[in-house]
Write a protein that binds this DNA or RNA. Structure first.
Lengths: 177, 177
DNA sequence: CGGCTCATGTAAAGAGTTACATGATTTG
DNA sequence: CAAATCATGTAACTCTTTACATGAGCCG
């Protein structure tokens, strides 16, 4: 049921079509916080419209419909945000994997951990660029900037963890021989 | 489809009943990486048994059945682990919320951020205890220790992020007045 | 004008949650 | 012996994905 709040939040930032929302879900939010496909987004936009939380603010070629948040929609979103983050469903493939690689044999585990470190370093670079780009404009930090900065903090932590784990694992390998 | 690997991974650490697995899902893995309810766990155990990836290693009172991983199950798990973390479905309520609180008005946002900082500090304490407990035994680090250490790293990062965001937000509030 | 991107939808299948349901054993 | 915990299951519903489906506009 959080998909509706994700949509409200994205639309509050900026009115958009279902198509554009699908793309945004394929990037930032979708890759890190909450993924969704267009086949879920379109019907949800319909529902939100029926409930008066969003509305069509512009129509264009090819059946294009740009949605924006209504006043009731803003109120609903605010209330949800003030309730604090939902507990409930968690789905984090990276973390699940981390939970389980401890059981690989030492060499496999070491290789896996190196992959984590590399990936974290990569993501760190990517996000630093994103953040710099978002922050460059001066004045107000745009919505995504907080999330980007959060990503930077967590990937840095992930990298440090990987380095620690590699050390641990290497130690274990040495002892095993 | 990752539920089966979560189960294989937990059972490889230690044979368990569906009931015990349900409880483990309610804690570590379930709270941070992949949640599941008993109504999903029991049918999945049945399927895994039919496929020969796990087996009943002990039966007890009250229809109790302790499952363990078979050789094919171990192989399947290893292959999956070596493929690296799945891309795909992500569900992270905390992050979704962080993505969206930027749009709250300044005072609300500040209050929300303070809540994040507090919660991170709390979790940090909890996990530090868990880790110390797991590491105290000396010798091999048990499976959960890597995950716990990862948690410590990420919650510390979350706390630092929250502090940074609070500063940003406070700055924004000052300017707004 | 052919291929790509924009743009929207629906149907069927699969995954996951909530609610309903039952009963044995242990603990106080 | 009552209440809590252990232990398992199923049914109905909701959410999500995959696959199917269509067509308009843009670019070279």
């Amino acid at each position: 049921m959080s998909i509706r709040y994700a949509l409200l939040g994205l639309l509050r930032d900026q009115p958009a079509t279902g198509y554009e929302l699908t793309q945004r879900f394929a990037q930032g939010i979708g890759r890190h916080a909450w993924s969704a496909k267009h086949s879920q987004i379109y019907p949800e936009l319909r529902k939100l419209t029926d409930e008066g939380l969003i509305e069509v603010v512009e129509e264009g070629a090819r059946g294009k419909r740009v949605y924006g948040v209504t006043e009731p929609g803003r109120a609903e979103l605010r209330e949800w945000l003030l309730r604090g983050p939902d507990e409930g469903t968690v789905r984090n493939p990276l973390l699940l994997w981390m939970f389980l690689i401890g059981g690989l044999d030492p060499d496999d585990a070491l290789r896996a951990l190196r992959a984590v470190e590399e990936r974290a370093t990569e993501m760190l670079g990517e996000l630093t660029e994103t953040y710099d780009f978002l922050a460059a404009e001066g004045g107000e930090l745009p919505a995504g900037a907080y999330a980007a900065q959060f990503g930077i903090h967590t990937y840095r932590a992930t990298r440090e963890w990987a380095r620690w784990a590699i050390e641990e694992q290497a130690e274990r390998n040495r002892r095993a021989r």
